[in-house]
């Protein structure tokens, strides 16, 4: 009854696909166009598409006065540091949760999950006080640290699912060969879960890169990140749409590039270990 690969079916599927892509990708393209539009065409309907590209907004945001170029560097520092700090905490925990049986494991897994559900706004003022008390307010480290409350739980869940899929027999074989626990961990298991490390790092990077709430109070002029920069163009007396769009395009690029480059790991990484066997 299902007309396999008939022409009608193909056309229907491609038409649906085109609709889906238009819906999800169209707005992004529309926003990118805003960043290179002459301002006079930004709110003209029907849409003006044959305009001369104007790179003024990129000049203003990135070069002169160029507030956002430094912020882009800050965002990179924060996001990369968040990834580096995240792995040594989450990978061992994920390994233990995958390989050992112990009481309260379910509770622990759910506890990690519950951390992702706290209202972030509620924690801003306490985090500022905490970071000030330990002398870290305004530093990159303060932002990197609190972002771990988002990245570590997510990473543990992801990594556990990857480790789950490494057959225990491989470890057994290595152990019988006389390898120590550390050797097994670093030379046997980690190489096998490399795709998992990549996906976990991708998500940690994007979480940290996109986070606007924590830098709102924890950053200072030297450490402010891109989302804060974007917000500053939305002022009482005016909105510089071109600047917002230009800064936003710069803010969109790294996560997009990462996801497109490592695309083959993405699908594999998002099963949370639930589809094994």
């Amino acid at each position: 009854m299902i007309g396999q690969n008939t022409a009608t079916r193909k056309i229907t599927l491609y038409a649906l696909l085109a609709l889906v892509m238009l819906f999800f990708i169209g707005p992004i393209i529309w926003f990118i166009l805003l960043s290179i539009r002459p301002p006079s065409t930004a709110f003209t309907m029907p849409p003006v598409l044959n305009f001369t590209p104007d790179l003024g907004a990129f000049t203003r945001t990135m070069v002169d006065p160029g507030d956002n170029s430094g912020q882009a560097v800050n965002s990179l520092i924060v996001a990369i540091s968040a990834v580096l700090l995240n792995l040594p905490f989450s990978v061992p925990a994920a390994y233990a949760l995958s390989r050992f049986k112990f009481r309260r494991k379910k509770f622990l897994m759910l506890w990690y999950l519950s951390l992702l559900m706290a209202p972030p706004v509620a924690f801003l003022i306490p985090y500022f006080i905490l970071m000030t008390n330990v002398g870290l307010s305004g530093t990159y480290l303060s932002m990197v640290l609190v972002m771990q409350t988002l990245t570590i739980p997510f990473s543990i869940w992801l990594m556990k699912s990857f480790i789950d899929e490494v057959p225990r027999e491989i470890e057994e074989a290595a152990r019988i060969d006389g390898a120590s626990g550390w050797t097994i961990m670093f030379r046997v298991v980690l190489p096998l879960v490399m795709p998992g490390l990549i996906v976990t790092s991708m998500f940690a990077f994007v979480f940290a890169w996109n986070n606007a709430a924590f830098p709102l109070v924890l950053s200072s002029q030297r450490t402010a990140t891109l989302p804060i920069g974007t917000l500053s163009y939305f002022t009482n007396t005016g909105v510089t749409w071109g600047n917002i769009a230009a800064a936003a395009v710069v803010a969109m690029l790294p996560p997009m590039i990462i996801f497109l480059v490592f695309d083959r790991f993405v699908v594999r990484g998002l099963t949370f270990g639930a589809v094994k066997g």
């Binding site: 801003l124 500022f128 006080i129 709102l216 109070v217 804060i228 917000l231 500053s232 002022t235």
Partner: peptide, 22 residues
């Protein structure tokens, strides 16, 4: 060292620094 913020961000930053007396 000059920093221009949006209204909301300025409020958030000021209040945080007042509370922590820094």
């Amino acid at each position: 060292e000059f920093e221009g913020l949006g209204y909301d961000a300025l409020q958030a930053r000021l209040i945080s620094s007042f509370v922590s007396k820094t």
